Computed example of a mutant assay.
Amino acid sequence: MTTQHRWFSNPTNIYWTCKALIEGRTISHKTEIREVKGWRLAAIVHRLKDSFNWPILTEFRGPDSIAHYRLSPGTDPALLRFPPSAKQLLDEIGGQE
Rank of each mutant, 00 (worst) to 15 (best):
G38V: 11
H29C: 15
A86K: 10
L80G: 01
W39N: 14
I14P: 00
D64K: 15
P83L: 07
I66C: 09
T2W: 10
G38W: 06
I22Y: 08
T26V: 05
G74I: 00
Y69K: 00
L57T: 14
K30D: 08
G24V: 04
H5R: 07
H5L: 04
L90E: 13
E32H: 13
I27M: 08
N10G: 03
G95D: 02
P63A: 12
A78Q: 11
R34P: 04
K37S: 10
P84W: 09
N13R: 00
S9N: 03
S65M: 14
F82H: 08
G62T: 13
L90S: 10
L48Q: 05
V36N: 14
L71G: 01
R70C: 06
G95R: 01
I14Q: 09
P55Q: 13
L41W: 06
D76C: 09
E97Y: 14
K30Q: 12
E92Q: 11
T3H: 05
S85P: 07
E97M: 12
S28D: 09
L71E: 02
I44F: 02
Y69S: 01
W16T: 03
R25H: 03
Y15W: 12
H5C: 01
K87P: 00
G94A: 12
Q88H: 03
A67V: 09
H5M: 05
V45L: 01
S85F: 03
P73E: 08
T12V: 06
D64G: 15
I33E: 14
E35T: 11
E23G: 01
D76N: 13
E59D: 15
H5W: 05
E97H: 15
L41Y: 09
H29G: 15
S65C: 14
L57P: 06
L71D: 00
R34A: 14
I93H: 05
G74E: 01
F52R: 02
S85D: 13
H5E: 06
I93A: 04
